[in-house]
Amino acid sequence: MQQEFGVFPHEAKGEIFVAELAGEIAGWGAWEGERNYVSDLWVHPDFQGRGVGRALLLHLCELMATERLATVRVDTHARNERAIRLYERCGFSIIWRGIEFSKSMGVPLEKVHMEKKLG
């Protein structure tokens, strides 16, 4: 799984923002597909709890605000409590919770959709 995350920034087709600390990739955020959708946010376990995810997420929100978008959306697994708390601290609210089929994993997953109003 870790290797997949390491490869993603090199293969993604959208805009990827990489955070580095001490010369190492600490995390990245991706803005792929819909213009107001944060498609991916990942922080290496060694760097979690140091503000990397918050900095990446707020940077993506600022970029979307400059494009005059009304909202930013993000999704996560419903059991990913750390991610949900991060998103809530950054101004996101849960707008939907339910079961959704994951195309990449090929199974139904319990997900939450979150949204933040801009401007």
Rank of each mutant, 00 (worst) to 15 (best):
Y37F: 12
R82N: 09
E15N: 10
W42I: 05
E100C: 12
G91P: 05
V107Q: 11
N80F: 04
H44Q: 11
W28T: 03
V107C: 07
G49M: 05
E24R: 14
I25N: 07
S39L: 09
A83Q: 00
E24W: 06
A22L: 12
P45Q: 09
E32D: 14
F47M: 07
S102T: 05
T71C: 10
R82G: 02
G91S: 03
T66G: 07
Y87R: 02
R54G: 07
E15K: 14
E100I: 10
V112F: 00
T66H: 10
L21A: 12
V38P: 00
W28P: 00
L57H: 03
C61M: 06
E20C: 15
M114L: 14
L56Q: 03
K117C: 10
I99N: 10
D40P: 03
I99K: 11
G29P: 00
Y87T: 01
L86E: 00
V52H: 00
E110K: 09
I99F: 09
G23Q: 05
R82T: 05
A83Y: 02
Q2S: 15
H59L: 12
L63N: 06
F17I: 12
G29T: 00
V107E: 03
I95G: 05
Q48D: 02
R73F: 14
Y87C: 04
G51P: 02
R73E: 14
A70V: 09
H77P: 02
A55Y: 05
W42S: 03
E34F: 08
V72H: 00
L21N: 06
G106W: 04
G6S: 12
L60T: 00
S93N: 15
G6D: 15
T76F: 00
I16L: 08
N36T: 09
Q48K: 03
R50I: 07
F101K: 05
